[in-house]
Every structure is written in structure tokens, then in C-alpha cells.
């Protein structure tokens, strides 16, 4: 078990780190093609990262340890999450500790680190971004945890490996009203957590509408490379999590090498499809006003709440 298990964990981390820029490039390419542009190619984010890493590291005057450690902390929390979430296999050495609440909290830790960095820079934009990011993060939290509640009911545990393995065994769970409602709620929460349209526009550099970009405005060179990589990894991990919860087919539930290879292929396909759908949707959506975002999140919270109560009332009859 431990040979394939360890390989699976290592593969998850490596795939997420190396694949995250590719996913970003793929989504930009899909978007460019749909808008009638040629696009820069799937590899462009990797080229950007290489360019940034070669630049000299710069510390803006007046910033402190919070500003310097935040990029690494963002990448570190996401890498730990990538190791925990059963993206490829449910039988890994860490799967006993792959708790869904822990995963959510680790991602929130990355958000908090970046918000502190934004405030640490002492600029108006940094503070503005931090304030908005924390507002959205605070409002997303209830949706996520109630959705977690809904997912944990059929499995009887918040352990991710147990949830995913249970869904592989009984696919009918996924099509139940509770499963569908919880997935819809979680999808909205993922959009908000990763700062995509309609909550935030990752491509914007218009000062007054920025959320994520405003926080990281002072970063440059290798630090900026880490911040970008961290954001891309978050997107990959969260899309992977969504895929694992809603479409767990292909994930290895036993410790065999062929199963792991199939899981790897299935993971790449699922995340690529989800990314393409998201990119296509973004072409047609517009970013909503910051103060309309709570309405969106309240809607998704209601979906999650309905998921929990419906699973109780439908199973109780």
C-alpha cells in the first residue's frame, strides 16, 4: 500500500504544482479563442513564471515579515491541501487525516496570510484589497461548511477519502437532491474563493474593482511568481476537489499502479473540462458589483442549507 500511496501523494503535489500554470494557460487560451483572438498559448504562464523567477528579489521599504512570508505560505498551504485531497487515490498514507474542514481552514489560512501582506504594505490599495478579500472570505465560510455538512451525511464522516470512496461505491448518492444542491453551493463558493468572475476579475488592473490583484500590487520578481503560482494552484486544487466530490469516477480506491495511471489521466481530463467550462462561462458573464456579491453568496448558502435539510427529510421517510 505504502509504495503506491506515497507515489499517489507525490504525484498529486507534482501534478498540481506543474499543472496549475498549464490550467491557467488553457483557460486563457479557451477564452481567447471564444473571443476571436489567437491567444498566447497554453505554456505562457510557465514562461511568465520563469521570467519572474529570474528577476532580482525586491523588498519594498516599510514592509515586514508578513509581506515577505505570505507568498511562500500561500503556496505551502495549497501544497499541503494538494497532498491531503484525494485527487488521484483514496488510499494514501495521509488519507486518514484528509479532513474536509481542515482543507477548508488551510485554504483560509493562505487567504489570511495574503490579506495581512496587503495591509503590511501600508498602501491604500493593499488595505482595500485585504478588506474586500476578508469580507468575501467571511461570507463564503458558512456556505462551504454547510456544504461540507451535506456531503458528510451519507458518508457519516467529514473525511474526504471516506466521502469520495463512498460516492465511487454508490454513485446514486451524487444524483440525490442533497448531492446536487451541495455541489451547486460549493461551485459558487469555489468561484468566490478563487476570485473568478462574477466575484472578482483575475484579469483586471483597474484599481477600483480589484480584489485579489490589489492585495498583491506591491509584489514583483520571484515573490510575484510565487503569488501567481499559489493562486493558480488554488484554482487547480479546488476544481479538483469539486471534480472528486461530484464526479469521483476514475479515482483509485485500491493500491494498484494501473488504477493510479487511470486516475491521473481522469484527473487531467476532468480538471481540463471544468476549466474550459469555467472559461467559457466567464466569456458570457460580467463581474457583479462588490456589494451584490453577498446576495450571490446568500443564495448559495440557501442551496447548501436546503441540501442538509433535504437529505434529512428525504432519508427520514
Amino acid at each position: 500500500m505504502s509504495g503506491t500511496g506515497l507515489t499517489a501523494v507525490a504525484a498529486q503535489i507534482v501534478v498540481v504544482i506543474s499543472g496549475a500554470p498549464l490550467l491557467a494557460g488553457w483557460m486563457r487560451q479557451v477564452r481567447a479563442r471564444m473571443e476571436g483572438r489567437a491567444g498566447a498559448g497554453v505554456l505562457q504562464p510557465w514562461r511568465d513564471t520563469r521570467k519572474l523567477l529570474r528577476k532580482e528579489p525586491i523588498t519594498p521599504i516599510g514592509t515586514g515579515p508578513a509581506f515577505r512570508t505570505a507568498p511562500a505560505l500561500l503556496v505551502a498551504t495549497t501544497a499541503v491541501v494538494a497532498a491531503l485531497v484525494p485527487l488521484l487515490s483514496t488510499t494514501t498514507p495521509v488519507s486518514a487525516h484528509a479532513d474536509l474542514i481542515l482543507v477548508v481552514a488551510l485554504l483560509a489560512l493562505g487567504t489570511v496570510a495574503l490579506a495581512l501582506a496587503g495591509l503590511d504594505s501600508g498602501t491604500a490599495f493593499g488595505g482595500m484589497g485585504a478588506s474586500r478579500e476578508m469580507t468575501v472570505a467571511a461570507l463564503v465560510e458558512p456556505t462551504i461548511l454547510v456544504a461540507v455538512f451535506a456531503f458528510s451525511i451519507p458518508a457519516g464522516s467529514t473525511n474526504l477519502a471516506a466521502i469520495v470512496a463512498g460516492a465511487v461505491r454508490e454513485p446514486s448518492r451524487l444524483a440525490s437532491p442533497a448531492g446536487l444542491l451541495a455541489t451547486a453551493a460549493l461551485a459558487v463558493a469555489v468561484l468566490a474563493e478563487t476570485g473568478r468572475i462574477p466575484v472578482d476579475n483575475p484579469a483586471t488592473h483597474l484599481e477600483l474593482t480589484m480584489v485579489h490583484e490589489a492585495m498583491v500590487l506591491e509584489y514583483s520578481g520571484p515573490d510575484l511568481a510565487l503569488v501567481e503560482l499559489g493562486a493558480q494552484m488554488r484554482l487547480t486544487v479546488l476544481l479538483g476537489l469539486l471534480a472528486s466530490l461530484f464526479a469521483p469516477w476514475g479515482i483509485a480506491t485500491d493500491a494498484s499502479w494501473p488504477a493510479l495511471a487511470v486516475a491521473l489521466a481522469a484527473f487531467v481530463v476532468k480538471v481540463a473540462v471544468l476549466g474550459a467550462v469555467l472559461a467559457a462561462a466567464e466569456v458570457f458573464w460580467a463581474k457583479v458589483r462588490l456589494f451584490r456579491v453577498p446576495e450571490l453568496l446568500a443564495g448559495s448558502f440557501l442551496l447548501a442549507l436546503l441540501a442538509v435539510t433535504s437529505s434529512y427529510f428525504l432519508s427520514g421517510e
Partner: peptide
């Protein structure tokens, strides 16, 4: 559960504010 989650989320905003505004910059 939602109340605990909301209060945890708001607590994050509160202490980012206390630490970031009070001690940084």
C-alpha cells in the same frame, strides 16, 4: 454549523484588522 462558520470567518476579518492595522504598515 453555519453560525460557527460565519463567526469563524468574521473572526478572521477581525483579527486581520487588529494585527494588520495595529501592528503593520
Amino acid at each position: 454549523v453555519a453560525v460557527i462558520a460565519l463567526s469563524a470567518g468574521l473572526a478572521a476579518a477581525v483579527f486581520v484588522k487588529a494585527l494588520g492595522v495595529g501592528f503593520s504598515a
